[in-house]
Amino acid sequence: MILVCGIPSESPLRMVTSRLEEVGVPFLMFNQREFANCEIWFEVSHKEVNGELRIGERTYKLQDFTAIYPRMMDDRFLPELSQEPPDSALRKYCRSFHDTLVRWMEIASALVINRCAPMASNSSKPYQAQLIREQGFFVPETLITNDPELVREFRARRGRIIYKSISAVRSIVQELNDEDEQRLERIRWCPTQFQAFVEGTNLRVHTIGDEAFAAAVRSDATDYRYAARQSGEPAELRDVRLSSELTEKCLRLSRVLGLEFAGIDLKVTPDDEVFCFEVNPCPAFSYYEANTSQPISAAVARRLESAATRYLTTQV
């Protein structure tokens, strides 16, 4: 049995469940918004993890799940909790339920796309950049500092530099301009990340199992995710084929990071150097699939199904 966790109407989740339905693969949906009507427990003993998940009236054995696709929103912000005081029983149960679910997924024998621990490398972009570098990718020259003068020197030397968050907290990548330079004294209270702007073509590579899908992105914006806002024109995406060498390099990077499914942000320079900016462990691939028709959701469904099939073969 496959378990899918999240908000059913969320685009990437909806795409994957649609693909599973199309090929007739059974799955169970845990809708986060119905947490109050669910229960979970698990036990670790003698190298085994057993337990139960109840959704509504039905109870399932955790050990029967062969593959899991968790794509959950921060449970603290579920609409069902919006009117709840901070210490309400419902709010505490919601947190406790999600904590138990995630703790189980970390040690479940099922295929999990993806577990939390490997996803955490993305919680620090410069940390992850050091892991990316070890796999032979170029990484952009980066300066993290609380010294405005060092930033001015960096900008003077590199010409165009950008700034963005160090952590996984989402930020819009912005180019540092003269106006920003006037505000640089503010970084004295907290080290901030600056990066040399890399010229070239943006590529987004989704890896899932042994498959890779690459999309080239044409945009004049510093952060193409916000192209319409930054440059007035939406980004243009197209399906491209990578060399077998680069494909293998991307697949290896995902494997080394322990990720079954990843969204790798690359930029290929005019000199054909391949820079890697980050590896997103929970890619919102629907935007790319909608714009390129790449069958990413089908590949995720196939990967989930393959674990179920393998399990059945083992049982026989």
Partner: peptide
């Protein structure tokens, strides 16, 4: 919360390096 996340991420990187 943002400042804590940024500092944790920063420490993770410089200690790794």
């Amino acid at each position: 919360e943002y400042a804590q996340a940024e500092l944790q991420a920063f420490y993770l990187s410089w200690i790794k390096g």
